[in-house]
Amino acid sequence: MKNTLSQLTRSHLFWPCVTLVLLCLANVYFNPGFFDIEVKDGHLYGSVIDILNRAAPLMLIAMGMTLVIATRGIDISVGATVAIAGAVVAALIGGSLVIKDGVQTYVSNVPMPLAIVAALAVALLCGLWNGLLVAGAGMQPIVATLILMVAGRGVAQLITEGQIVTVYYEPFFFIGNGFIFGIPVSLYIVAVVLAVLLLLTKRTALGLFIESVGINPVASRFSGISARALVFWVYAFCAVTAGIAALIITSNVKSADANNAGLLLELDAILAVALGGTSLAGGRFYLIGTLIGALIIQTLTYAIYSLGVPPEINMVVKAIVVFGVCLIQSPALRDLLMKHAFRTGGTA
């Protein structure tokens, strides 16, 4: 019995799950209807659905970030990539409100599939740039991606001409607001990306390659893994996840805001990866853990909104909880507490 319990607590998913459950309980305490899910206008409606839906962009980016971090890297340019891809898709679709004889009609600038492909291509380009700097030029990942992080919002501003671009083209709203069988479209996107990643990393040797590059790039290279190419494509993939997230974000608010879209998302993504149990030192990675990490962050944000925390101290509350979560997840501290608990237990 004790054996299975200790096995359970040693599982990498245990502590993230405990944290998420605790946060949900806190939500229920302040909002008894937290777990209520009803069907409204043919789709699911409730707090949990909101959290999943809002966390979707973060989950996507955090999955890409997990792979980057597993190779001992980091990508702090994802927020800027979101701004750029969002600006591209909004500027291309755009659409304007035309009032003709009192009838309002909306038209798009270029066909929507083309605009989406273009936005993803631009995101991929951002990733290739990062990959080139890290894998090709051998720059330190944080410095290499810092370049795009700083320059990216400027690029996005150029595309939007410093404006907030409002999208008036209805079909585009489906990505961020639509439902299939009552479940938000964004969750299907997350599920597809997750399935592809799990398939690639668990069913092929790719996962093993990524971990080995993260643990020891030199040894990996000597054992025949083309570490450079691997790292290069991991950054490209991470940027594409940011591009997909940008589509959801832009579609959800029906506009692209070069200044604020994806702002500080890179930090949330890194936090999600860390909360999920993946070490920032590279090596072993846990995609499901990352998803739980992303949900922890969004659940916390949600709790702050429904708690009635004064807006001035939002960030402080968030910081305290994150601090606590990180402490719980620290094995060193846990061991220390365990020892202490056993000692006092023994003397009593």
Partner: peptide, 19 residues
């Protein structure tokens, strides 16, 4: 606070409506 933006305004209002 909704930071004067549509995205935040929407997110906060969603939470308000549920609670």
């Amino acid at each position: 606070t909704g930071d004067f933006t549509r995205a935040k305004g929407k997110e906060v209002m969603e939470a308000f409506l549920k609670t």
